[in-house]
Design a protein around this nucleic acid. Structure first.
Lengths: 178, 178
DNA sequence: CTGGATAATGAGTCATGACTCGACTTGCAG
DNA sequence: CTGCAAGTCGAGTCATGACTCATTATCCAG
């Protein structure tokens, strides 16, 4: 993470705009959407996008980092079950994260960012187990696995609210008593 | 499903080879692998592939149909929990089905083929509920949803055997008592 | 103000991949 | 056998999309 000299004001503004545009475009069309499309939505020429993010992968990585940070923050506002529910409901909006966590075509390494999310969920798990809401033998890996799975399922399957609820009910029951 | 006159012997052979090659290639590289690659593996010129399957989508649809039929057949050999376990273990090998059921980029409509799978799983569910292995209020949609989710999770997350087992344990517990 | 460094622009390059088509082969009916 | 319809071949077309770079525009330190 080498920081050069600080960015010029216009550059900073554009960088932010590009990330916002990328979030919207990739959420709507998936990570296969073109860089052109992102540039257009950001109201910026394509060269500018590549000045800030030398490759499309770099753009995706930067976006991913931002989105994961948001998730970590949200984790702090919920208990484990509520976090699950919230994520599933948001799955479509956060298509990018789900896609990327799924490793669909693009490879991106963000060990620390993902680590922070695991850490946050780990805390929720501890709390839930302290309350007895989740059975003792449950460990973090399977909770993360279930979280990722159910997000992908919800995203790709186009679940309605009722199906979301019924599916989560099964998982919560499974977590409660192993 | 209009059938023209029967295919010539060599054409039939090639059609089968192409489908086999497609299964292998798409399983290894995902559905983004090129038609060229499939042709090479089949030992056939690219024009031949396009003679049999006018578009890449047609090829994927035909392959999907075959794979789903296999799944339906396998469903008959297992009880519900065993089928889950089997599918998860095979997730990587059947990447294509998972990808396509996930609708990743390609749109394919195979309502009847998917319908048959649902039917087969429906039977397993009934049996499991008759035995008391699965709680009564569970319905087919959430079972299908869980099945799809966990396959995607396993595929994209690269779960090891232990994680597969632990994750499935949670789901099975959830199905047993709602 | 202003000069030079920083940034933006967008037409152009290059690679890839789906799909076409006219020349050539080959299975098979008669 | 043999003629020809059915099938194969693979170089070529076209579209798309990542990335470049010479030119032009904009910031901001002094």
């Amino acid at each position: 993470m080498v920081e050069g000299p600080p960015l010029r004001a216009d550059a900073q503004r554009n960088r932010a705009r590009i990330l916002d545009a990328a979030e919207a475009v990739f959420a709507e069309f998936g990570t296969r959407a073109s860089t052109e499309q992102v540039a257009r939505r950001a109201g910026v020429a394509i060269g500018t996008v590549f000045r800030h993010f030398p490759t499309k992968n770099d753009l995706l990585a930067a976006l991913m980092k931002r989105l994961l940070a948001q998730l970590v923050e949200e984790a702090g506002k919920h208990d484990l079950f509520a976090f699950f529910t919230h994520l599933v409901a948001q799955a479509a909006a956060k298509k990018t994260v789900v896609d990327l966590l799924a490793g669909s075509g693009v490879d991106i390494r963000l060990p620390d960012a993902v680590g922070h999310l695991e850490e946050a969920v780990g805390k929720l798990l501890e709390q839930a187990q302290a309350t007895g809401a989740v059975a003792a033998p449950i460990r973090l890996p399977e909770v993360m696995a279930l979280l990722a799975s159910v997000c992908q399922g919800a995203l790709h399957g186009g679940w309605d609210e009722q199906l979301q609820a019924r599916t989560l009910t099964v998982i919560f029951a499974g977590l409660k008593q192993d």
